[in-house]
Design a protein around this nucleic acid. Structure first.
Lengths: 243, 243
DNA sequence: CGCAGCCTTGAAGTAAATCAAGGATTGTGG
DNA sequence: CCACAATCCTTGATTTACTTCAAGGCTGCG
């Protein structure tokens, strides 16, 4: 039985791995599956023995009462993100992993990845680095929600997503997919859905960007970057892509 | 030249390593130094070739304008924390590392740690796990600042610190050191210093805890846990210590 | 066509920021 | 040991940002 062909999935964050390294990882993928929106892939505390690479769709990591007012999205993953590589050294996760859309994921058994890491310490360190970029993004989210105001937060969030989606090859002509409801944007940015609506209106009326039908059209990226004070250093990119 | 004796530093988060593993790591420590409060240990973006294990004192990770209004503490490290092991796979950091008090740190060259990891994949995975607990704490901070209100945030922060300091052996009879100013607490919890003052007063008058002269006295830990909705799962402890 | 989910807007209430002044603590040098 | 400065803490008054509550209008889909 041969591993599924993942060559088209060498995009986004996982492109930090060289083609050769990615091929070695892809070779131990045991399954590619599709999963429906909103039905959790895993729950907080659940023992896990595999990790998922997101090929298509959007996934959130969620903390808090499943329904209550105190629940938040603490991370969002897009194509090319190794969603829960964190579960390999940890064995379980502190949060639920929830598809925000229908998703296609490639599954890797921890044992297989562990064997790969054991025989190639340099590759192991690169996988480690992947998870540490996640940690850096978490720090940025903590900064965003605690230091910025509503409109700035959304601008910053959109700047982050624009660059990550660009790396994943999902951006076309200043148009980026963002298939989240305003309530979900609020969960990610620490705002109510109602206030997200107003902040998005401010961004629209300020001529920065428009969000409609799950798509953001960016009219003034420089302005968007400026109001957020956005700088992509926290993504640890070798080179910032021209767009 | 022999490595410094770090056996007394096998506390807190680093106690996740078995005594034998810790000894192997400690053996490659090349220096123990003291560093004064407030003078940065490293700045964002600076190339780094060593990592620090905090032996004594408090360290913060800071993002934002060095002085401006948009600056935040996105993490706080205490005795037994491997402060910037993140810089090993990443080579640099996205934030400044700043001692909040005078600190004593043990320094490890990346090359030495890398060699250790290469010859012992299981140890490498445990070091990896250490950094992923940091990531989990980041997620919790993002949750805290975006989902909780002022008093709840401080209660949650104090609950986290109480348990981490307990693991580090720094808690005595419901009394924990917390040598941060109210402005610094505000930077960590996403509040102004003035509002931290009022929230601390509420905690005091509610009979939960008192903060004075850099020391928190906990009067009602169950109550403190309850108003914060605190649960220590995100620290991935093998067993929750009795206190 | 009709329903469900999502978006939009208004009005009112609340939590936190800001501005400002004075008081307590800590550290320092005489 | 005391005087003094610097930093930190505390409190009040005011303003601002965000939430909450509520109602109505889209949009996409069975």
């Amino acid at each position: 039985m041969s591993a599924p062909d993942l060559s088209a999935a060498h995009v986004g964050m996982v492109r930090r791995l060289s083609p050769a390294d990615f091929a070695r990882v892809a070779a131990v993928c045991h399954e590619v599956r599709t999963h429906p929106a909103r039905e959790p892939l895993s729950l907080a505390g659940q023992p896990l023995d595999e990790s998922l690479l997101l090929i298509d769709g959007w996934i959130g990591r969620r903390i808090g009462d499943p329904d209550g007012r105190r629940r938040r999205l603490v991370a969002i993953e897009v194509a090319g993100d190794f969603v829960d590589l964190h579960s390999l050294p940890l064995g379980r996760l502190d949060h639920a992993v929830v598809p925000l859309t229908e998703v296609r994921v490639a599954a890797f058994r921890h044992d297989d990845l562990r064997a790969l890491a054991a025989e190639d310490p340099a590759l192991a360190e690169r996988l480690w680095a992947l998870t540490l970029v996640d940690a850096s993004i978490h720090r940025h989210w903590a900064f965003r929600t605690s230091a910025l105001r509503a409109m700035e937060r959304l601008a910053d969030f959109i700047c982050e997503m624009e660059i990550r989606l660009h790396l994943a090859g999902r951006v076309e002509a200043g148009t980026i997919p963002l298939p989240l409801t305003q309530d979900e944007l609020g969960e990610a940015c620490g705002l109510t859905g109602v206030h997200v609506n107003r902040a998005l209106r401010d961004l629209r009326e300020g001529g920065y960007c428009t969000h409609r039908s799950g798509i953001v059209t960016i009219h003034d990226r420089a302005g968007l970057n400026e109001i957020a004070g956005f700088s992509p250093e926290f993504l640890y990119l070798a080179d910032i892509p021209d767009r």
